[in-house]
Design a protein around this nucleic acid. Structure first.
Lengths: 144, 144
DNA sequence: TATTGTTATACTCTATAACTATA
DNA sequence: TATAGTTATAGAGTATAACAATA
């Protein structure tokens, strides 16, 4: 069954690439004293000011886990808590200029490190690759 | 520059898929009271009996980090330490039958959960996808 | 009562530095 | 001296459960 064979190898290859990306990102983040989850936090806050619950959902965390995460980011001046005008219980989280700057630095650095890994692919191959990734995300409901 | 555009989207798409995989794996592992790193540990031990340093290198960890990791896995009866006959300082780590069984269960479960995400791709698309992943790994030096 | 968020507590994971035992 | 591994210690990240304040 060659089809199943490919499917199996695909799962394997996907995880190998996934771990590769996580390692690279982790190393780059660590060079700026950040963890992967802090990088994700800053990335989300680049175009949003969500509440704690919404942020927890985006990151797949419990709200209590997020409290500490935001505490540590806030202590470093990367994010700040804003009281919600509409709801006295709620807080909105906003990244500071320094937080956004750091996020951009990380993003650029990651792009620069990963570019060589993609340059061996022809433009056509890249298009197909991107298409396949899109289909996977779509099938997972991560894209409309 | 459409080529750079695709490259940028590719990095983005790769990370989206990567986080998707990590979340799925994490959830499946957690259902068996395992972390991702414990799953990786058991996977490595499926066909090897490495020493602590070699294991640390495979996992990208410091040897001291590995001590605790192996401690916890051993306490659950998933792995065991064997004295090295050749070197009195060294230990070899071996997975127990239960550890190997658990590793197979996780692997099957992951395959079953991810299969639907790949079924939307045609056999040809899968081949191309697998080829692209292989090229990325190759460029990263993760493959000969 | 229900919801938003924090706090208390406990555990895993990781690192650095110091240590033990063997080579 | 050098190497394989453990231990001590510290901090991040996560979860559950209990709590406070507001809706």
């Amino acid at each position: 069954m060659p089809t199943n064979e490919t499917a199996l190898n695909l799962v394997d290859g996907l995880f190998q690439v996934s771990f590769l990306l996580q390692e690279r990102l982790s190393r780059i983040a660590a060079a700026h004293d950040l963890s992967i989850v802090q990088v994700r936090l800053l990335a989300i806050l680049r175009d949003r000011e969500p509440g704690m619950l919404e942020l927890a959902r985006h990151l797949g965390l419990k709200k209590s886990s997020l409290s500490g995460l935001v505490d540590r980011a806030a202590a470093r001046g990367l994010v700040e808590r804003l009281p919600s005008p509409a709801d006295g219980r709620a807080a909105h989280i906003r990244s500071t200029p320094e937080g956004r700057k750091l996020s951009r630095i990380i993003e650029r650095r990651v792009g620069k490190e990963l570019a060589p890994l993609l340059e061996t692919l022809s433009p056509t191959e890249r298009d197909h690759f991107l298409g396949a990734l899109g289909q996977v995300l779509s099938a997972a409901g991560k894209r409309k």
